Simulated assay, not measured.
Amino acid sequence: MTVASRLSLILIALWAGALWSTGVSAYVLFDALQDKQLAGSLAGKLFNVVTYIGFASAFYLLTHRLAQFGTAALKQAFFWAVFVMLLLVLAGHFGIQPILEGLKSQAFPADVMQSVFADRFRNWHGVASLAYVFECALAIVMVLKAR
């Protein structure tokens, strides 16, 4: 096995593990902390780290797969799982997160959940959560189709 292939496996493990552990950690933060703003802030920092892991991992994994298999990579479930995961990361980071941050800043100094923006924030947070769950499910495909 080449160094490039070993790095590919490490990135698959890192990205999938980061996705799953951050999802569980966010649940634990909101369950354990009474201050929901603090829980949200900490969870947001964790999700931000996972976003950058996703950017780097997806770029490498897609490039490596194309270099390894050429256009035949386009017929592989692995390639498309990683590609859709990257699209979800991009949509979350450049689309959904700015909306959520905008709603929080409009509500400031109040907690967004205690403001007139609570319903919109809840709806967009639901969209973000569904996208994250779908990304986690695709990570299973990524892991299973790695070889």
Rank of each mutant, 00 (worst) to 15 (best):
M1Y: 07
T2S: 13
S5G: 15
S5K: 14
L7I: 13
L7M: 15
S8C: 03
W15M: 12
A16K: 02
A16L: 07
G17F: 02
L19D: 08
S21L: 13
T22C: 03
G23Y: 05
D31N: 13
A32T: 05
L33F: 08
Q34L: 10
D35Y: 06
K36C: 08
K36N: 06
L38C: 06
S41C: 00
A43N: 03
K45G: 04
L46Y: 01
N48G: 15
V49W: 00
V49Y: 13
V49P: 02
V50W: 02
Y52P: 13
I53K: 00
G54Y: 03
G54T: 13
F55P: 13
A56Q: 00
A56D: 12
S57L: 05
S57P: 07
L61H: 09
L61G: 07
L62P: 14
L62F: 05
T63Y: 11
T63F: 12
A67L: 09
F69P: 07
G70W: 10
G70V: 05
T71F: 09
A77H: 14
F79K: 03
F79N: 06
W80E: 06
A81P: 15
A81H: 05
A81Y: 03
V82A: 13
V82N: 08
V84H: 08
V84Q: 02
M85H: 15
L87Q: 06
V89M: 11
L90M: 12
L90C: 10
L90Q: 10
G92M: 10
H93Y: 08
F94K: 08
G95K: 09
G95C: 05
I96S: 01
I96Y: 01
Q97I: 09
Q97C: 14
L100W: 00
G102K: 06
L103F: 07
L103K: 00
K104M: 12
Q106L: 08
F108K: 09
F108R: 09
F108Q: 11
P109G: 00
P109H: 03
A110H: 03
A110I: 03
D119E: 14
D119T: 10
D119N: 11
N123D: 11
W124M: 02
W124A: 02
H125V: 07
G126L: 15
A128R: 04
A128P: 01
S129V: 06
S129G: 01
A131Q: 05
A131E: 00
A131N: 06
A131R: 03
A131H: 09
A131G: 07
V133M: 12
F134R: 15
E135A: 15
E135S: 12
E135Y: 13
E135H: 15
A137Q: 01
A137D: 01
L138F: 08
L138Q: 04
A139Y: 06
I140N: 07
V141N: 01
V141E: 01
V141S: 11
M142R: 02
L144P: 11
K145D: 15
A146H: 11
A146S: 12
